[in-house]
Design a binder for these strands. Sequence first.
DNA 1: CTAGGGTTAG
Length: 749
Amino acid sequence: MASIPSISVTATLNKLEPDLKKLSPASIGFDKSIPHQELRCPEPQEALSVLGECTTIETATYVPLLQECIDRRSVSNARALHAHAVKTGADRDPFLSTFLVNVYAKCASMARARALFDELPHRNIVAWTSMITGYAHNSQPDLAVSVFVELLDSGVYPTNYTLGAVLSACSSLHSLKLGEQIHGFVIKYRVESDTSMGNSLCTLYSKCGDLESAVKAFRRIPDKNVISWTTVITACGSNGDAEMALKLFVAMLWTDCAPNEFTLTSVLSSCCVVQALGLGEQVHSMCVKLGCDSSLPVRNSIMYLYMKCGKIGEARRIFNEMGTTVRLITWNAMIAGLAQMMDNASDEFLARRSGMEALKIFLELNRSGTKPDLFSFSSMLSICSRLVVLEQGEQIHAQTIKTGFLSDIVVGSALVNMYNKCGSIENACKAFVEMPTRTMISWTSMITGYSQHGRSREALQLFEEMRLAGVRPNQITFVGVLSACSHAGMLDEAKAYFKMMKNEYGIKPVMDHYACMVDIFVRLGRLGEAFDFMEGMEFEPNEVIWSILVAGCRSHGNMELGFRAAEKLLELKPKDAETYVLLLNMYISAGRWQEVSKVRKLMKEERLGGLKDWSWINVKDRVFAFRADDHSHPQSPDMYALLENLLEKARGLGYVAHGELEVAEEEEKAKMFGVSVHHSERLAIAFGLLNTHDCAPVRVVKNMSVCRNCHDCVKFVSILTRREIIIKDSKRLHRFRDGRCSCGDFGAF
DNA sequence: CTAGGGTTAG
């Protein structure tokens, strides 16, 4: 076999491109696929009329007719032919009766296959194998295995075909233990060198999550075919090693083995993971050259690739071209792609645009008469949680109840998450409790929810319950646990959990865990210890950690450490405009003008000039966007009047505006004209208060962090209006109630 | 009587 290049991923990808460009169907010796011929299948009566009234019919006459039944999956025709064979006595031929078992199995009629199998006077190995294959292919892998056990008990020897069928059952059961025992049989019966055996073993280990053994099984196949290559490429892709998948694909191209639509689909999905648009485009053109682009899975993968790489227009074009062949999975890929884009979006505008597009597509999907499934629902719930649109989320919740998909674990977890992210922890809790089964992910989701709502005690209690239930936490669970500790300033607990994570669960701490720990030290004002703790990190701290330190040093008045952290932060050249504002504010308040101009210059270099403050609010299915000091909405006079009125009352209750420095460009303008500043969230809140009923919570999304003044101000507004106000800003969720915020006042700088 | 592909949650 061709050797696999062992160079770094990006280098490999760059090197791959010229090679791929040279590719053409001829260069890899690919036969143009033969057009699929229309199958002509006679109705039962017609089939019987072919046989006529003749009573001495040989097996050979039935076989082609039964073959057509298999191709058409026609149980009724098979039954008619079977009945006819019984009448003529042809079914006494062991070959025909065995074939009939296989026909029923292939037509997914396992009950009939079993009945016939049980009546067979001589069960040969082919009949046994047909039964096992049948169960394995008809989502009854457990029955497949028990038939295999029956076979062993009856003293029959399995063949490579039989073992392949059992292995496939073990794969769908994800049972490594069982599979390894079958692997033992493979060695015992000396069928290791059989290509299909190797392929089945590769699939087994891949499905059981043992990538190393899967690759080993592949390497041991002496004559590798397309299926071997496709299997190993898929194995890498589905076990989190997309780079290896792509390397293997290139290695494959150096052999005589041509890729087919299965291979290309798998390769495209790996391109999606590493967002290799350039490579993906070449694979796309290869699909066209090889005539594989009409395959639905290939098309879906291509569309999903463009989606994931942010080419919505291109994806839409492919989607529209698919016209009437659009199936549910295509809709789902579109929605999932948009959800992904939302997560990868560099700014809130792009994220919102993708999310709103997904809502639109989901509406189209429902109107098309197609029934959404668990994939659609879980993606949509994740989109609703990101957009903080509770009403739409509730509608989807209702739809999941009606369609019965609520009992799905993934949908259930997504629902818990949606309620949490929309600020409704009570409903999240209800959804969590009502789940028929809880996985690690549902526990994690709820723990994180409590933590984000500032309910640290409940978060930690739930974590202990999870452990008691015997569910193993992962990295993300511990992020939730540690951030719960940091919210409540529980340093000792945090240290203990950090240790537990490493020692008891063998989980390596990542950046997020360190960020939580540093955050605790900073909250408690123990800045020196925060620096000491960072010494123990196995990697360089990132901009998030440094900005926590800068902000902490600033609020605790430790300027010396603050400047040190700031220098480090500047070296990293963060991509986030808000971080620069943090630095600017610090340098301005210290009168360090040299650094101020340095930061300004960096911002220009990084093209982070304009900081635009925006907030969004959903009212009755419509989205309203506001900027700072926005006067564009017809209701503006009422909104400003309401705000001034509330501010007046708030001052009476003790609200004082801090002398914060203002840097956003709107504010600079406002200062020049000597007008007061109303940040966008205030306007969105005012609009929400005016346009929703008396006790409805107001939910606002903001593209920047809430400033300290607004944060204080909203607290008073929540008292004065007796309303719950939820703001999701660029950093965290704030839920204001009765003058208090769930963030514990540590979320605003 | 075999073997392989597309969409989901924290």
